[in-house]
Design a protein around this nucleic acid. Structure first.
Lengths: 343, 343
DNA sequence: CTGTTAGCGCTTTCAC
DNA sequence: GTGAAAGCGCTAACAG
C-alpha cells in the first residue's frame, strides 16, 4: 500500500526485526524458532514470535548461522558426470536420507571445468561439511589428499580409494556372478566381460565376481579391459571382443558400456539376443528403454545413496566408518536382451 | 613429527592467525589476499603475508565473508532430473562461464524429495545469490512466487515462465522446422510429431516450428501430445502415433521421448529407418550411441548454459534481462535413423 | 520464562 | 603503508 522506495529489495528480516515486532529479545526468537529444547517460552510469547516471523517473512541467514556454529548442515555429492542413469537414483537416496537427518544437499560434477578446485573448495571454504564422492569422480590421489587435508570428511562411494579408510559399496561381485550364472543357465559358453582397469577397486570387484561365476560353470573368463568408462570405451571393447572371441554373450559391466555394446553389435549386424546375448549391471530407465530392453542385475543404488548419507553424517559426528557393503541382494531383471544360445 | 594432540582437527587458520605470524593486522592480510586495489602494501610485507598464509594453509571462510558482504558469489542450477543427457552439456556451460565471472556453482535436481523446499531454501537462506532454473523443474506457479519473493533472482532457462520477465532459450522453432525439412527432403509425407503440453512454452515453440515446416511442404501436421516428459510418455505417444496415423516418420521432440519411440517401434516390429524414420531435437551422447544412431538437429545447449550464467549474474548486478534466444543456428546431425521413404 | 553478553571470521571505513 | 574499530546475523552461555 504505502509507496515503498520501490524496486530495491526491502532488506531481509533478521532475528532482531522479529524480536522488535514481538517485543522480545532476538535470542529468544532464535530459541523458539529452532525449537531449542532447553528453552521454554510461554505459549503466548511463542505465538507472538511465530506470527511476527511469518509476517516479516523471516528466514534464517545461513551464512550467519554457519559462521556461528562452524558448520553448514549441508553435504556435497560429487558425481563423475550427469549422464549415467544410476546417478539419479543415488542422488535421490542421498537427498532423502540427508533431509531426514536435517542436512541439505548440493551436487557437483566433475565434468565441470576446474572441478578439482571446485570440489575441494566446497569443503575448505565451508560450503559443505563433508562430501560423498562417487569413485573416480576425481583423480584418486587427489581424493586421498583432500581426505587427509579435511580430516576425513570425504566418503568414497561405490568402491574403495587407496589411502582412505571408509567407503560404501554395493555387492558388485555377487551381481557380476549372477550375470554369468544367468548366461550359463541359457547355455552360453563363449562369454566376454567388459571391465575398467582393475587398478581401480570397483572394476576389480566386478572382475572377481565374473571370474567366480565362470569358474563355477567351467567357462573361460574372457575379458576386455577399457581405457575409460564411457559408451565409446564400451563400443571399442565390444568390437575387440567380437573379433577376438566370437562370443555368444557379452557382459558390459556398466550401463554406459552397454550402450556402446549395442551400437557395436548393431554395426556388425549381430542381432540381440538371437546372435548375441547382452546383460549388464544396474537396472535403470536406460535398460528399460533400449531396444531390445536390456536384461540386467538390479543393485540397490538408491539404498547406497541413503546409506552413504547416513554414514557420512556419522563420520561428521566423529564416528569411525570402515568399508561397508550395502545390504540387499542383487536381483535379476529379465528383459529382452538374453536368450538361449543358438544351436 | 611433533606429537600433535592427534585426531582432533587443528582449528582452521584465520586471517588473525596469518596476521600474527606475519606481524601485521588481519585487515591488511585481507586486503593483500584479495588484491584490494585501493590498499597498497610494501613488497616486503606483502610477501611476508603471502608466505605466512601458505604456511598456515589459509583458506577463506566463506560463511564469514558471505555474512559480511551479504552475498555468496555462488549460483544454483536447478534441473528437472539428472537423466537427460543434455543436462551435462548445460551444466558444463554454466559452470565454465560462472567460474570466469568469479562465481561458483551448485546443482540441485527436483527429483529430490522436498525439492521445492530445497530450492527455495537455497535462495532464501543465502546459499546462492540466484538460480538458473530449467523450465518445469518445479511447478511454474511456485517458480513465479519464488521469483517474486526473491526480487527476481531466478532465471528460467529453455523457455519462458508465465509471470517472469526474463528467460534464456534456444531456437527450438527453427530446429523443429529443420527436422520436418529433413524428413520432407527424404520424401516423407506421413509425419507425426510428439510434444508436451502447449500450455508450456517450450513445447509450444517446438510445435510452432513443426507446423511451420509442415506448412512449407504441404504436409499434414499430425501431433500426439504427452502427459509428462519421460521416455515412458514418448513410448505411449509413439504407440498412439502408429495406430492413429501409420506414419513413415516420427519426430519425438526430445531425447527422452526418442528412447520411448525406439522402444515402441521395436516392439511393434518396425525397422528404423527402413519402415519408419526417426529424428529428434538435441544431439547428445545418447543419440550417438543408440541403435541405429539417431539423426538429430543440434542445438547449442552448452552455449545456453554459458549465456544463462552470464545473464543471471548481470541480473544480480541490477541489470534488466528480457527474454532472449541464444545465438547459433541449429544444424542437422545426420546419423542412421532417417532414410528416403519407401516406395 | 526471558534478557544480556560475547564472539564466530571477515571486510571496510577511517585514522595515523 | 598500516592499524584500529565496528558490525554483518546468529547462537550459546550465563544471569536474573
Amino acid at each position: 500500500m504505502a509507496p515503498k522506495n520501490s524496486s530495491m529489495p526491502p532488506r531481509k528480516a533478521t532475528l532482531r526485526d522479529v524480536g522488535l515486532l514481538a517485543k522480545v529479545d532476538p535470542s529468544l526468537v532464535s530459541r523458539v524458532l529452532n525449537n531449542d529444547p532447553n528453552a521454554t517460552a510461554s505459549l503466548a510469547t511463542k505465538s507472538r514470535i511465530l506470527s511476527a516471523a511469518k509476517k516479516l517473512n523471516y528466514t534464517t541467514n545461513f551464512s550467519a548461522r554457519n559462521l556461528k556454529m562452524a558448520k553448514t548442515l549441508t553435504i556435497g555429492l560429487l558425481l563423475p558426470d550427469l549422464t549415467n542413469p544410476i546417478n539419479d537414483l543415488v542422488a535421490h537416496g542421498v537427498q532423502e536420507r540427508a533431509a531426514e537427518l536435517g542436512y541439505g544437499l548440493v551436487i557437483a560434477n566433475h565434468s565441470d571445468i576446474g572441478g578439482d578446485r571446485t570440489i575441494s573448495q566446497m569443503l575448505t571454504q565451508g560450503h559443505v561439511d563433508g562430501i560423498i564422492a562417487f569413485v573416480h569422480s576425481i583423480n584418486d590421489s587427489l581424493m586421498e589428499n583432500l581426505s587427509k587435508n579435511s580430516n576425513g570428511r570425504i566418503l568414497p562411494m561405490n568402491g574403495k580409494i587407496k589411502g582412505i579408510e571408509s567407503s560404501v559399496s554395493l555387492d558388485d561381485p555377487k551381481a557380476a556372478e549372477m550375470c554369468v550364472e544367468h548366461l550359463a543357465d541359457l547355455g552360453h559358453k563363449k562369454i566376454v566381460g567388459i571391465f575398467g582397469s582393475t587398478s581401480n577397486d570397483s572394476p576389480k570387484r566386478r572382475v572377481a565376481g565374473f571370474k567366480k561365476g565362470c569358474a563355477k560353470y567351467d567357462i573361460q573368463p574372457n575379458i576386455v579391459f577399457t581405457q575409460g568408462y564411457s559408451s565409446h570405451d564400451g563400443y571399442l571393447a565390444t568390437l575387440e571382443a567380437i573379433t577376438k572371441y566370437s562370443p555368444t554373450a557379452i557382459f558390459p559391466s556398466s550401463n554406459s558400456y552397454a550402450l556402446g555394446t549395442y551400437r557395436a553389435l548393431y554395426e556388425k549386424k549381430f542381432r540381440i539376443p538371437e546372435d548375441v546375448s547382452v546383460i549388464t549391471l544396474h537396472n535403470s530407465a536406460l535398460t528399460e528403454f533400449l531396444s531390445p530392453p536390456l536384461t540386467s542385475v538390479r543393485l540397490p543404488a538408491e539404498e547406497m545413496g541413503k546409506v552413504s548419507a547416513e554414514k557420512l553424517i556419522d563420520m561428521l559426528n566423529g564416528k569411525q566408518i570402515r568399508h561397508l557393503i550395502v545390504d540387499g541382494k542383487p536381483s535379476l531383471v529379465l528383459r529382452g536382451s538374453t536368450a538361449r544360445v543358438n544351436g
